[in-house]
Design a binder for these strands. Structure first.
Lengths: 125, 125
DNA sequence: TTAAGTGCAAATAGTTTGCCAGAGT
DNA sequence: ACTCTGGCAAACTATTTGCACTTAA
């Protein structure tokens, strides 16, 4: 992985965000600094950065979201309205059996909580 | 949601699996009992079942996976080879601030661990 | 001086939807 | 009857890829 202006700016912009944007949202942001960049370059670099541990791809709901923060990202996903909320990290889970993960290098984790949000729970009873 | 033979069999087959299959994999399995069912019917019913809390859609890696078990499902996703492992549940995370989830109905959760698997960690050093 | 990176356009593929016919209550 | 459901085919859309050119080391 050698240096590239595009990747540098993508990572810089991603680091400045706490919103874990989708690929196309990050594209819109990066384009303000690099107007001629293409969407495929953004996705390509997000993949390169993810493979190299510089960015995290969060699978939550219908879209992939990206983040440059290694902090745990916990979400609540409502099965009815499909909205996604951030949930502050509480006690965090540890991989249960060390044996099962022997030799693995654990770098991070995120938890997806699911159920009904307050609105949907209220309207369902 | 009224009764339907298709939905009944889809749910029955899904309950019999511990592999959290993708939509198309479940389609192949269900087709053995209902040869004329279509892929869209499987997806449609998975969505209906998910919205009604009968099935869980897991977002981990590149595909949506489905499960009828409410037990926590933890996975390890290797950022290099992109393989996914099941991880036995250890201590599980609780939503940190009860206030942030006030009124929410928490029905389940799953955690995605990420990093390098043993093979990729070994070949990288 | 060579392999990685880029822009553009086209392709891929998981998933959804329109439509009309069929089945549950 | 009334409307939820299913099969089929076509559409949708986030993401990836082929290609020819450019750039970093």
């Amino acid at each position: 992985m050698r240096n590239s202006k595009a990747r540098e700016i993508i990572l810089e912009e991603l680091k400045g965000l706490t919103t874990h944007p989708r690929g196309d949202e990050l594209y819109d942001i990066v384009r303000q600094k690099l107007p001629r960049i293409s969407l495929s370059t953004v996705y390509r670099n997000l993949n390169v950065m993810r493979q190299n541990g510089l960015a995290l791809e969060l699978h939550c709901g219908d879209y992939n979201r990206y983040d440059a923060n290694i902090m745990p990202h916990n979400h609540f996903l409502c099965r009815r309205c499909e909205r996604v909320w951030d949930v502050e990290a509480g006690s965090l889970p540890e991989p249960a059996s060390a044996g099962a993960l022997s030799g693995f290098r654990l770098e991070g984790q995120y938890t997806v909580f699911h159920g009904l949000c307050a609105d949907c729970a209220a309207s369902t009873g």
